[in-house]
Amino acid sequence: MTIGVTIPASDTYQAANLIEEFVNQTGQAAAAGLSSVWFPQLLDYDAVMVAALAGRAFPGISVGTGVVPIYPRHPLLISALAQTAQAATGGRFTLGLGLGSKPFLKPAFGQPYPPPVQHLREYLAVLRPLLSGVETEFDGDILSLHPSMPTIVPGAKPVPIVVAAMGPKALATAGELADGTLPYFAGPKALSTNIVPVIGRAAASAGRPRPRVIAVFPAVVTREVEATREVLGERLAAYEEIPSYRRILDAEGVAHAVDLAVVGDEELVAAAVQRYFDAGATEVVISQAGVRSGEDRLRTWRLLGELNKR
């Protein structure tokens, strides 16, 4: 059981050079005693490249993407990026993938949005052998792969794949073809009833090892509780309109995404982390969505580092 954090925090964008700040914060996370840092894929930077740079700069910490949407990226492109990051970090990179949200992504890229679960199944069928060092070809209903040159990076160890899966079909696919799941807003109740048993059964049926279950939720150690919760409420509200997140919030029995945020003192956050481990998480990753200052961020990381060392 390990503890990590997502980067960036909201104070990150105040930096003159965003990528340098990502790397600097990775060093701070490593110094605090955290096991991992995870970078979300937005539209302004490349998360896999950032993970490679940060992981190479600080050998004492694992890095990953949380997460890269598979639409509209061809698996051959993601394979090349992931293998490069794995070789650069000496085997400390995990590729986190997600289905993405059609209402947010389709207007940005302007390409047809495929059936999500079928796309995920074909994607993993192509990507898993590539990231295990196996040259492969593939013809599916959505994807095709017939490379005319090598696709394996010498020196890259096999790359673990985790999927931000929360629905039963996506979880079953992840259990069968990936190494685990990275759900966001799956609270302890939803985790123990809707996530852990479903992906666990799928992995067991496929003869796969016990899957990683990386629970991600927002938490901030701060004195400014009300102001921080207000910021979180604004930043997390959009997730409530996305069907997959709406279903997992309903499974937890909460009306709003901010209801899953843990904001307060060290004792409050430490108890929340333990609840997620008790619910079946193998790893906990704390989202920094509501951090309002570098002081609060470092205070939160000091606590998480202490818990991680225990």
Rank of each mutant, 00 (worst) to 15 (best):
L143C: 05
P158A: 02
G167L: 13
V231D: 09
I3M: 04
G64W: 03
R208I: 06
R310T: 12
A80T: 08
L177D: 04
F277G: 10
N308M: 00
A206N: 09
R56N: 08
P160N: 07
G90I: 05
G66H: 01
A31N: 08
L131M: 04
V221N: 13
V258Y: 10
P116Q: 10
L260Y: 01
P112E: 09
P168K: 11
I248M: 08
P107S: 12
A87M: 03
P103F: 06
P183Y: 08
I61F: 09
E267H: 10
K157Q: 15
G167I: 07
V37Q: 04
A215S: 15
I214C: 08
R275P: 00
Q41E: 15
M49G: 13
L124H: 08
G207K: 12
Q274D: 13
L249M: 09
Q25F: 03
G140Y: 01
K106S: 13
A174L: 04
H119M: 13
R275E: 14
T173I: 12
V67R: 04
G27I: 03
W38N: 06
D44H: 14
A85T: 00
F217T: 12
I248Y: 07
V254T: 07
R73P: 01
A289V: 15
V263Q: 04
R299D: 13
H146W: 05
T300S: 15
A206M: 11
A108L: 12
E283C: 02
I242V: 15
T94C: 10
S287I: 00
H146Q: 12
Y276F: 14
L76V: 09
E283N: 09
D179G: 02
I214S: 11
E122F: 02
N194I: 00
L120I: 03
V68M: 08
E230C: 02
Q83G: 04
V63M: 07
